[in-house]
Write a protein that binds this DNA or RNA. Structure first.
Lengths: 212, 212
DNA sequence: GGTTCGCGATGACATCTGTCATCCCTGGTC
DNA sequence: GACCAGGGATGACAGATGTCATCGCGAACC
């Protein structure tokens, strides 16, 4: 054998990093590139960019932040799953919300990491995921299971989400092409299901649970 | 002179890093330690810890995240300013809110960085700050100046902040030892001053401006 | 001494919200 | 065919919310 066809070592893990905060993205990329068996082959600042970069670089693992402008990490994960079925997905997020974990898993993610955990766990998770394991914080998994699924119907979810920015009922009705009474009814049942006392509390619990 | 009393190089910059998200903190520390002239001599996960670690390590520069549990970065900056007047302060934050910038500067910070900016700017800012410069994103500075100061009176601010979590007027009145009518009056004027249509919008604009 | 401003309060009023009962229609499912 | 669950709507009602005028008090300022 005269020459190796590719210069890269067989065991190097090719990673795509999608994270909107430039400083965090740069720091994480540096951190990962220090590992002998990991190489960051692509970076993206939002979900859409992550998909185009992934199509070009064909990474072994995609590291996706949830909180990104435009297409969020979970939505991007679902699209990526179709485009590159062999690419493992690691979801990285600021908030360990039960609903996030549930949706991430349903979108085909292999790991779910919160940014609170130590930095060394990132590389470890990437290696474990490539070995076929699933990586989830046990405490968070328990919380997600005990919290149960999203109790809101799709329409209740829509209306609650549209009310989250302080819009008045009239605004929401106009935006969703519903009558004001209907909006009030959906809000009322959303408030009941979230055990809240008003719309604001309902929005907050729903967000805390990752239901929006 | 028989021996140098300290083994450290004269030009090494000793940095304290306060950031609550472990993964980000670890990655930033790694990034900074890669620089020849910078050494992270202490890490902290919240504002109070930052103060104790700073007292022990006496850093040249303190890198403080704003969004931390317990004592936030701006409050910590003010305390640090008293305890270690020679320590330069760099504020690092997710949100480039005008009010944050203003308060950070009033607390004695020398630099204000948003996490959106590229990772390489961090080390650059640390060096410039130590050289006596102030480092502020020009666009953000302009926004802070054009936005003007916080129009809310201290009490309006209190009441609005207490209403942010969806509490009812009765709750807020009880918590702040005010009559319900007074709370309504303060909320009403806060709503007027923020050009909002209701309490929720008022809370949102106030937060977006960094007025809470 | 007069003025202004912030804090705190009251009462009245109009409107917005949240709840409930009730209705129609549609697409399952047993 | 009977029987739900959802989506969508209406009307009525109580209570919460937002606005306004008005008052008293004390501190600051000219």
């Amino acid at each position: 054998m005269i020459a190796v066809s590719s210069s890269r070592v067989a065991s190097v893990i090719r990673v795509l990093l999608a994270e909107d905060q430039g400083m965090v993205r740069g720091a994480l990329a540096t951190l990962l590139n220090l590992e002998d068996d990991i190489e960051v082959v692509g970076e993206a600042a939002d979900g859409d960019e992550a998909l185009t970069v992934a199509a070009r670089t064909r990474p072994d693992v995609a590291l996706l932040d949830i909180e990104m402008p435009g297409k969020d990490g979970i939505t991007a994960a679902a699209s990526l799953r179709e485009a590159l079925p062999d690419c493992r997905i690691v979801i990285l997020t600021t908030f360990g919300r039960p609903g996030y974990l549930r949706r991430a898993m349903e979108s085909g993610a292999s790991a779910f990491l919160v940014k609170d955990s130590p930095a060394k766990e990132l590389a470890a998770a990437i290696r474990r995921v490539l070995a076929g394991e699933r990586v989830i914080d046990p405490a968070l998994a328990a919380a997600a299971l005990s919290a149960g699924p999203n109790p809101l119907s799709p329409r209740e979810r829509d209306v609650l989400a549209a009310s989250a920015d302080g819009s008045t009922i009239g605004d929401v009705a106009g935006r969703l092409h519903l009558s004001e009474g209907t909006v009030r009814n959906y809000l009322s049942s959303a408030i009941r299901k979230t055990s809240a006392r008003n719309r604001i509390e309902a929005v907050q619990t729903a967000q805390r649970q990752g239901w929006l």
